[in-house]
Design a binder for these strands. Structure first.
Lengths: 339, 339
DNA sequence: TTGTACGCGTTATCAG
DNA sequence: CTGATAACGCGTACAA
């Protein structure tokens, strides 16, 4: 049995309402009484029952996070960061990797203070029924959802990636990414690339846009080989995600294509793991700490301000220069392969 | 304002205790009444308040997981799996990546039903004070902690890895891993390797055991290069973790060492990502689903059985054969003659 | 079969 | 300053 304020009251010889006050730094209690109560509580190993606390205060200090897939590497560092930032503000995090609807239902039942919703696919149902009992913050998708939304400016990220390569002198640039219609975040990246291709008058070619269908290393590997063999022969490539980069880099190494001597590579996803390639990758993407800070402060704002109006916040990206990009090579790729 | 059973009672024209019964499939309520109540509840979008529920039932249906580091990839698939298994048994998971003590304190305050404790380092303090209000299950460390403990038999894993290589004909085998004294799980692996080295009379050499100090790809890379240049020249290597393998494989590729033609490689950590190397890695380690199942059922057992006795459960490992191991290269066959 | 009353551990509002 | 007492939403003996 856990000790309660009533137990403390009995031992300390006061009423339990006095104990409550003493333990909550309520000024309406004599310093001597307070000291005594605190001491007794300490001795008895008292730990406040948050369950009872939330029942009366209607606040749980828990943020529910709907996380579709924990294995998805790119987001695990973000979730970690969010948890840390949340802890610093004395909130706790309840994770669910169930489907959106059921996850929200569970969170509603536990009366979390707010819900953070990671979402990738356009077909995930957002019509929550019955409606959630807590404000929802939506992350990871560029559409207006009726909920407050935070999104990384992926379009701009890709635009900047191309601009960077263009400044280095590249004009034949390929895009390797998931071009499917389902995932809006992928579409944004694609759109950013294409806008830049137009603006900087890149060489156009049927094999310029390479569709991996998904973000797995395996698809990256397959499409990487396809890119190497294609007629387009780009001098630089832009890759849509970390997972794809893993596979593409494998394909490149197998074909003994040197990065950046033979081919410049830039990838989306600004995460530390990008250093762990045979050549550390230059990347574009939002800084994880930035995103976490933005998410957490918005979340807390949502909790504290009862009247929430839907809004859309865009997070800016940064380009992290490492060793995978350089000027275009002099001859073409096939000439180099013999070395 | 969320709807409560009192609201439902008013609309349905019954008392709220009847509502409670109807919603909990209590047989002491007429089918007609029950149907009506259920219908009203549905229409009003009623969601039971788990907070109030746990206050009275003293059960939260939450399992707290103390997770030192979410970035550590090896465990993220395990956590995912545990979450799924838990959900199937209608439990929820509260994650904390805070230090052990504070994480347990928070969980105690939320009155979680049980706590799962991932722990790596020997110096993490386990003397929880004040004591946790829920049973603790300890995972990931071979020592007896006073708590029920589940542990993977890493020693046997490494032994089997060596046995496998030995059967393939190898006698000069190196171990690349974290040999520091702090982390008991790493020590177990090392001990398993050394026991096998003795049993199978492997060639001994000062450069046989290579200490990476940690499990980062970068250390793997450095030590990998060191191994390549060493006087020992093993025909096979055993790697202590996924992270290290990432770095070692990079070093191998850079040096144009073919796997398994020039060098056989086997690694600890039985996770799907092991396929995503230039050559899919043969591995040893516990099956993640197995571990998750064991952990979850033990957890639930702990919750349901009030009197818990400390015990120690060991999980068996499996060897997953892929393409990174073969017979020693020809120049070394002389060593095999004696067998 | 249904309704009443109490308790779970807290906070908050009043009297004293 | 301190101590009753009423919520908070729900389950559950027990009474009707």
């Amino acid at each position: 049995m856990n000790t309660t304020i009533k137990d403390i009251a009995r031992i300390a010889g006061v009423s339990y309402s006095t104990v409550s006050k003493a333990l909550n730094d309520n000024p309406l209690v004599a310093p001597r009484t307070k000291a005594k109560v605190v001491e007794v509580a300490r001795q008895m190993g008292y730990q406040p029952n948050m369950v009872a606390k939330s029942l009366v205060s209607k606040k749980s200090n828990i943020i529910g996070v709907v996380w579709p897939r924990a294995e998805r590497f790119t987001w695990s560092s973000l979730v970690t960061q969010i948890n840390n930032t949340l802890a610093a503000r004395s909130y706790n995090m309840l994770l669910s990797i169930n489907p959106v609807d059921s996850a929200i239902a569970v969170f509603s039942q536990f009366r979390v203070d707010a819900i953070l919703l990671f979402r990738e696919y356009i077909m995930d149902n957002l019509q929550v029924n019955p409606p959630a009992s807590a404000p929802i913050l939506h992350y990871g998708s560029p559409i207006v959802s009726g909920y407050p939304t935070i999104n990384v400016n992926r379009k701009k990220a890709m635009f900047e990636a191309v601009r960077y390569l263009h400044q280095l002198g590249h004009t034949r640039i390929s895009y390797i990414g998931d071009l499917s219609q389902m995932d809006l975040t992928q579409q944004e990246k694609q759109a950013g690339f294409q806008a830049a291709a137009l603006q900087f008058q890149l060489a156009a070619h049927p094999d310029m846009m390479l569709n991996t269908q998904d973000n797995s290393p395996d698809s990256g590997y397959q499409i990487g080989k396809q890119m190497i063999a294609s007629a387009f022969q780009p001098t630089a490539i832009v890759i849509g995600s970390y997972g794809l980069s893993v596979g593409v880099m494998r394909a490149l190494e197998e074909a003994h294509i040197r990065v950046p001597a033979d081919l410049s590579v830039i990838s989306y996803d600004n995460i530390p793991q990008m250093v762990n390639f045979s050549v550390p990758l230059t990347v574009v993407g939002a800084n994880v700490e930035c995103v976490a800070d933005m998410i957490v402060s918005t979340l807390i704002h949502l909790v504290e301000n009862p009247a929430i109006v839907a809004h859309y916040t865009e997070i800016d990206v940064e380009l992290v220069e490492r060793s995978s990009c350089g000027p275009p090579r002099l001859g073409d790729m096939s000439a180099k392969i013999g070395i």
